[in-house]
Computed example of a mutant assay.
Amino acid sequence: MRLDVAGVGLTLGGTPVLDDVRLVVRPGTVVGLVGPNGSGKSSLLRTIYRSLRPSAGAVLLDGTDLWSLPVRASAQRVAAVLQDGANPSALTVAEVVELGRTPHHGLVSRTTPADREAVETAMARAGVTGLAARPMASLSGGERQRVHLARALAQRPELLVLDEPTNHLDIRARFELLEVVRGLGVTTLAVLHELDLAARSCDQLVVLNRGTVAAAGEVLLALTPEILREVFGVHAKAERHSDGVIRLTYAADPLADL
């Protein structure tokens, strides 16, 4: 599924938050949304998972305006994993993942074999099958994030939206989670706070600054020394190393004058 953010604007309480934001996430790719704090990243995601209606422009899923769809239909197509997602400690992992099937149920629907298959597949893809019977309260932060990812996958979404999924995780858990995401083959837009992880894990990047797109495209085109200096306030460069991995190198005096 293709996501097009077409000239999206957003005003909250009379204050412009987003202005003519345009980006494309092509089917099956992982696009990272990066930018300084307060640049509008999470607000943009909220227009995509239908928490905030855009003041201008449109969010298109394969050419269909997301906000024209019934709520249930959009929930079947778009799944979100939020950085401050609820952690229902009284539920087991399997019960939390089963919540992802809610958009596919009517008022009196019961769990079907198709639901059980979707839950089992989602847990396997997120690597939490062995945790199925454990209560959420017993899990580490990285394990909980993988459970929330499994819940989202149980929706069988066409678009996955992640808001700082690696927040508060240790370095190993961050790599593990992003490796899982990259292996899913689901069209994904992810807000990532760490530029090094974003450069390593994403097919393309969109750099947001003060509510507008400052750069977009392949990682090395989006993270130029000029963008790193002007948007992020650091002297640095992104380079592809001999192992194929893109890494950021910071100057001895990394702070730029703003």
Results as ranks from 00 to 15, higher is better:
A6M: 12
A6N: 11
L10D: 02
L10F: 03
T11S: 13
T11P: 04
G14N: 13
T15H: 10
P16K: 00
P16W: 05
V17F: 03
V17M: 06
V17E: 04
D19R: 08
D20P: 05
L23A: 09
L23K: 01
L23M: 15
L23V: 11
V24Q: 07
P27V: 13
G28Y: 10
G28L: 15
V30N: 03
V30S: 04
G32I: 12
V34D: 09
G35L: 12
N37G: 08
G38C: 13
G38F: 11
G38L: 15
G40I: 07
K41P: 02
S42Q: 09
L45S: 02
R46L: 03
T47I: 11
T47K: 01
T47M: 10
I48H: 01
I48R: 01
I48D: 01
L52C: 08
L52F: 04
L52G: 02
R53C: 07
R53Q: 11
S55V: 14
S55Y: 08
A56L: 14
G57C: 14
A58N: 09
V59T: 04
L60P: 02
L60D: 09
D62A: 11
T64G: 04
T64E: 13
D65T: 11
D65E: 15
D65G: 12
W67L: 14
W67C: 11
L69Q: 10
L69K: 05
P70M: 14
A73S: 13
A73E: 15
S74A: 15
S74N: 05
A75R: 01
A75N: 02
Q76I: 06
V78K: 00
V78N: 01
A80L: 04
V81S: 01
L82E: 00
A86D: 14
A86N: 06
N87M: 13
S89P: 04
A90W: 12
A90I: 14
A90D: 14
L91G: 01
V93T: 06
A94I: 11
A94T: 08
A94K: 00
E95C: 07
E95G: 00
E95F: 03
V96N: 03
V97A: 05
E98C: 02
G100T: 10
G100E: 08
G100M: 11
G100F: 05
H104F: 08
G106V: 13
G106L: 14
G106K: 05
L107G: 00
V108P: 00
V108N: 01
S109A: 15
R110Y: 05
T111I: 15
T112V: 15
